[in-house]
Amino acid sequence: MKQTINFILNGEPVSVEVEPHLTLLQVLRDKLELTGTKEGCGMGECGACTVLLNGKTVNSCIFPALEADGKSVMTIEGLTDGQGHLHPIQKAFIEYGAIQCGFCTPGMVLSAKALLDENTKPTEEEIRHGIAGNLCRCTGYLQIIEAIKAVSGQ
């Protein structure tokens, strides 16, 4: 039986009818056409599908859509402001070469955001710990770590 969920998506209230077995990722990608959130494994193991739920990172591929009801969800599409200005983390990713194929990037950027929101000056260890749930096959992570350091003013 379909149920309606209401949540704040990238700052705007939305209301969607969903089947109870859908994951948040399916609702975002298939129903709301926000394809910036990627599916790399569908099992919680790669972080490509990372979104922020009430400011905290979750793997949307194994997160029941119904649990988003009443919450606030941010996807990569919500990170740029209304005028299309990039977030400082996005700018740093570009500037430091933290992007290659880009498939891990949306999830990685959101993990970086959650990390920095919580800890404005993370050590390198803390950065590595914070993004360890986001696999990247292309970059070897080093330029990503540099980019995050740069945003935090280090």
Binding site: L53, V58, N59
Partner: peptide
């Protein structure tokens, strides 16, 4: 345990 994303939920 797992990752930040896993531990959050």
């Amino acid at each position: 345990l797992g990752s930040v994303q896993i531990r959050n939920v």
